[in-house]
Design a protein around this nucleic acid. Structure first.
Length: 511
DNA sequence: GTAGGGTTAG
């Protein structure tokens, strides 16, 4: 029917469409994911003899790529009489966006330096996007050094893609070097670097980078502010978060659903669940992410009944839950000891919503059942799991054994699982495990865990906190304060803060 | 007339 508009199926009076119309039509078809329409348009293009037109050909490639039909896209690309930069970029980014990094890179490498395509000048970081999305560090490094070795001139987009790729692959220092050395930066570049710091667990660097950004003439956008709020959330920086909220409200800017979510999350993580609820209620639009932020926020505050209420409101509003929602719901039930509600929601998760429970869901259930004394049921659930249980799950089970004095079962589990040679490498929560053994009086097991920890060099990850001083955020690692010198330690801490030297402080001047 | 970088929830 749609083709009638293009005169494809009309009577004799229907005008023949111009080739200029096709790029628009194909763009619309791919935006609406109307694959069949796209194919019909393709057939019509061939019939009318427009398939040799470079713009039409490029649009067809793009359409097939966006519909994830890479085989069709490639066939077309290979059969093209002429290709230009757009043809190459379209197919390379097509492979990139569906995660086929090696195809993307191979084509990038085959891209002719001369001939019927323009020279390798403006390939615009498309393969970098591929490396980013797949966190493919070796490939990313290869493209990165290709750019250096061949002295490829980088525009802002390539710079941003480079920064983003390095961040996603965990190479924050290299990302920052690229960022600092960039000839041109725009808002997206700053946002990419900030996102990298937030996701890489360096919120203080993100905040400091933001300060630098505001010192330039560049104005932040929603993405910048979402990152900023997310940084405050992970630092528990309530006052800074509130200030950002006030600034946002004063600016009169539109608070989109991403910002609402970031605000709800920030308030919840900073302990202000009431303010989180307020933002949630006032949000103009609620999407899955926002519902989830509210449910998980309530769950983390131990407000199980409220979390379940929001969950039912969510269903009434016609929003379908996902796995994240159920992590919130089940952990809420687990914290509150709501055994029946937990069982029922775990059942609904699979039967009603067709969602596959993951390790985290099982962990909630095992903890809930185990604590409530249903140790056998918890064990049966673990044995029924499709995936390998991790140590959080075994730990919950052992903890349940400890509470309910199922020492024999605990010994059985620890012999069969914890100390079986294949699992030793996976020891992830040895401290928890040794505490459980200790409180059950299983001293031989305690000694074994301690020995294993020594052998593998495993140590608990240090906690840390943040302080604002001299206009920058500083991170402090938690150290043992139980010994005699702890008061001195804190004096050292204060002076090191003032003169900016040594000690326990990790300083990130200028992010 | 076609391609192309940066945001939320566990």
């Amino acid at each position: 029917m749609e083709l009638l508009l293009l005169g494809g199926g009309g009577g004799a009076a229907a005008p023949k469409p111009s080739h200029l119309a096709y790029p628009f039509v194909l763009k619309a078809a791919s935006a609406l994911s109307m694959v069949e329409l796209g194919r019909q348009v393709h057939a019509q293009i061939c019939k009318l003899g427009f398939h040799g037109d470079l713009f039409v050909g490029n649009s067809l490639i793009d359409m097939y790529c966006k519909c994830s039909l890479m085989e069709d896209a490639r066939k077309l690309f290979d059969g093209m009489p002429d290709r230009d930069q757009v043809s190459w970029n379209s197919i390379i980014s097509g492979y990139a966006s569906c995660g086929r990094t090696s195809c993307s890179l191979q084509l990038f490498d085959e891209m002719p330096a001369s001939g019927n395509a323009p020279p390798k000048r403006r390939h615009d970081g498309l393969p970098l996007a591929a490396c980013s999305s797949s966190c493919n560090w070796p490939a990313g490094r290869w493209v990165s050094s290709f750019i250096d070795v061949n002295a490829v001139p980088v525009n802002v987009m390539v710079t941003t893609a480079l920064v983003d790729m390095h961040c996603r692959c965990g190479a924050l220092t290299e990302a920052r070097r690229r960022f600092d050395e960039a000839p041109q930066k725009n808002l997206a570049t700053w946002n990419a670097m900030m996102t990298g710091y937030v996701r890489g667990g360096r919120p203080e660097s993100a905040v400091n980078l933001f300060s630098h950004m505001t010192a330039t003439s560049l104005a932040p956008n929603e993405i910048t502010l979402v990152n900023l709020l997310s940084a405050f959330a992970s630092m528990g920086a309530l006052e800074r978060g509130k200030e950002a909220h006030v600034d946002l409200a004063r600016s009169g800017a539109d608070v989109n659903v991403f910002l609402s979510t970031a605000l709800v999350d920030m308030y919840a993580k900073c302990g202000e669940i009431t303010l989180a609820c307020l933002v949630f209620v006032k949000a103009a639009r609620k999407d899955l992410g926002l519902w989830n932020a509210m449910v998980t926020g309530l769950a983390a505050h131990g407000l199980a009944a409220e979390a379940l209420t929001v969950f039912s409101q969510m269903s009434s509003a016609g929003a379908a839950p996902n796995e994240v929602t159920f992590v919130g719901i089940l952990s809420a039930c687990s914290h509150a000891g709501l055994v029946d509600a937990g069982r029922e929601n775990f059942r609904k998760m699979r039967k009603v919503y067709g969602l596959k429970p993951d390790l985290e869901h099982y962990a909630c259930m095992v903890d809930l059942l185990g604590r409530a004394g249903h140790v056998e049921e918890a064990l049966a659930m673990v044995e029924d799991m499709e995936m390998e249980p991790d140590f959080v799950i075994w730990g919950s089970l052992l903890n349940a054994c400890r509470i309910h004095h199922e020492i024999e079962l605990a010994e059985k589990i620890s012999k069969a699982v914890v100390f079986s040679s294949s699992k030793v490498a996976n020891l992830g929560c040895s401290v928890l495990l040794s505490n459980i053994f200790a409180s059950a009086g299983m001293w031989a097991e305690v000694a074994r865990v301690r020995r294993l920890m020594k052998e593998t060099g495993e140590r608990k990850v240090s906690g840390c906190s943040w302080m604002e001083a001299e206009g920058a955020m500083h991170r402090f690692l938690v150290k043992d304060t139980a010994h005699d010198g702890s008061s001195e330690l804190y004096v050292t801490l204060d002076t090191s803060l003032v003169d900016g030297r040594g000690g326990m402080e990790e300083r990130f001047n200028g992010a």
